[in-house]
Design a protein around this nucleic acid. Structure first.
Lengths: 138, 138
DNA sequence: ATTATAATTTGCCAAATGGCAAAAGTCAAT
DNA sequence: ATTGACTTTTGCCATTTGGCAAATTATAAT
């Protein structure tokens, strides 16, 4: 056969991260359209709670972890708050440590890639949340 | 002064629940417009994650509890999963028990009211989530 | 270099969210 | 009954989300 065989370390340019999952594959396992995933990836769209929930497991995250990373939950609300302390000592991020600890090597790399992506999304969302106050409250 | 004095047990008709908070008051403390809160209340709108986060504290909920009640997180993901067992024995809902235990009487009544409301919202959301599959996945 | 196949991006659009302002109830005092 | 101060509802609309289908771009085998 010709054509690209499969799964050769996809490069998500905007995030400068190499991950072993294609958008299509994530689309299939999560049920979210690949086009939308692509736009989320490069910050053109912000995933709603429903979408976030769909992609959590396929990405190797606990739901609340992903919600926290995306800025929808504050850290002390999620299981991230009480992550294993033995990993913290060597400067490794607790989120990453916890997730990596019980995931396959491929998933581990995928997680790191997506992690970077989500943090940038989280920043925009949080920024947006802490605006002076665009709210009504009359 | 004349006019309605204030806060006399507002009745949220569609949910058949009496609560001591007006939409306006919740609007002020949460920063969400009262019109939108009203529509959420009677199921015409579904609160996004941002909105849910804003109203959690004013309602006496932990963020992840409210997310779970709204169907955005599955139960085992949130702190609801490990709620105090001593309250469970007498048939009292653990969610309610946990929240009521450390809130003022007024808030306690408010919480019960909103709890009912959110459960119905949660049902619609979950139903929508478990559809055969409206997803892409090509 | 060409080509076949798989991956991402873009254009377009339907549906939903959420705010503001005006309208429509409520209730208590006159 | 009318007024006055409140609360909720409605109409309208700007913005966002997210899917589909058609480009476009990348990769690997020829």
């Amino acid at each position: 056969m010709n054509g690209s065989t499969r799964n050769l370390g996809l490069l998500i340019k905007r995030q400068r991260v190499t991950i072993p999952l294609t958008l299509r594959e994530l689309a299939v396992t999560s049920g979210v359209s690949s086009s939308h995933l692509g736009r989320i990836e490069r910050g053109e769209r912000f995933p709603s709670a429903h979408i976030l929930r769909r992609i959590a497991k396929p990405l190797g995250f606990e739901e609340d972890e992903l919600f926290t990373l995306a800025g929808y939950l504050s850290p002390q609300s999620s299981s991230i708050a009480e992550s294993h302390p033995q990993y913290v000592s060597n400067g490794l991020d607790p989120y990453v440590a916890r997730v990596l600890a019980h995931e396959s090597p491929e998933t581990q790399r995928a997680v790191i890639g997506i992690l970077t992506m989500l943090k940038s999304i989280a920043r925009s969302i949080t920024r947006e949340d802490n605006r002076p106050n665009g709210a009504t409250a009359e």
